[in-house]
């Protein structure tokens, strides 16, 4: 019925053909499947990127009319060579940048139409893991995690409980007093994943999380991401690591020069047909 998300407002969806008492929030709208898009695996949609283009001031086009739909609970690898637009696509999701054209909807919120003051609240719903970890260097592991909780006003008692749980999940309880520069690359990435998980995010976005790690540690990190996915969190992971993508056999979206050239369930790093 409605093939375009253009009419969606972030907090209220109203359409003259729907009686007022049936007006729904965007997330519920998506979950009941009335938006009319081709919903993969009949699940509710977590990430919807429609006809998105990103053009930099120097004229370089990082993304060209790209459309991607990711369902709740999926584990998706985004692959492609350097400059293919992987990081740009991820940055659009946590509103680190805005597209030149197109619409981005994450967990029912129209990220492109969002007011700047609402951006921090979007980011609290997402967990983001970076190649360079981005841990606060002046804080130890425990404080890095506590900071992410305290900024959203979590009570100190709840902070202690939650940090204990997450550190156990990532296997870093014994290093909670260490500062980032006292940790190995793998430990830093575990700390970064712990921070990304601390707010129970609906989506975990990982931008080349194994880029600075050796193969064994990389594999451990990806196993950890899979565990997190099994618990119900949607995971979107941009990577260059062919061994990991081939070993995991998850959905693979391949970008090339800003365009999606392949979207394959249980895909491999390289196109199986090539």
């Amino acid at each position: 019925m409605f093939r375009d998300f253009g009419f969606i407002k972030p907090h209220n969806i109203v359409h003259p053909e729907i009686p007022k008492h049936q007006h729904l929030s965007p997330s519920r709208f998506a979950s009941v499947g009335v938006l009319g898009y081709n919903c993969p695996r009949e699940k509710s949609v977590m990430i919807y990127v429609k006809d998105v283009s990103v053009e930099y001031a120097n004229g370089v086009r990082a993304l060209k009319d790209t459309s991607v739909t990711i369902s709740k609970g999926e584990f998706v690898f985004v692959v492609g060579s350097t400059g293919s637009g992987k990081s740009t696509l991820l940055k659009l999701l946590y509103r680190d940048m805005l597209p030149t054209a197109g619409t981005v909807i994450v967990d029912g919120e129209n990220v492109t139409a969002m007011k700047p003051s609402a951006v921090p609240f979007l980011r609290r719903k997402l967990g983001v893991v970076y190649q360079d970890f981005k841990l606060l260097p002046q804080k130890n592991v425990w404080e890095n995690l506590a900071f992410a909780l305290r900024v959203i006003g979590t009570k100190p008692k709840e902070v202690h409980k939650r940090i204990g749980e997450v550190l156990e999940l990532v296997g870093l309880t014994h290093r909670c007093d260490s500062f980032p520069n006292q940790l190995s690359g793998g430990e830093q990435q575990r700390a970064a994943i712990a921070r990304a998980l601390i707010n129970n995010p609906t989506v975990l976005i990982a931008d080349e999380p194994t880029g600075n790690l050796d193969p064994t540690t990389s594999w451990d990190i990806v196993q950890l991401l899979e565990q997190i996915n099994i618990r119900g969190t949607t995971v979107l992971c941009a990577t260059h690591d062919s061994q990991i993508v081939d070993g995991m056999k998850k959905r693979v979206i391949q970008l090339e020069a800003g365009e999606v050239i392949r979207d394959e369930n249980k895909g491999a790093y390289q196109n199986s047909e090539s």
Binding site: F121, L136, A148, V151, I152
Partner: peptide
């Protein structure tokens, strides 16, 4: 500035 950037990325408001 790196610290400020990280704060923004974990969802800290400008006020915080």
């Amino acid at each position: 500035r790196r610290e400020i950037r990280i704060m923004q990325l974990v969802g800290a408001t400008n006020h915080t």
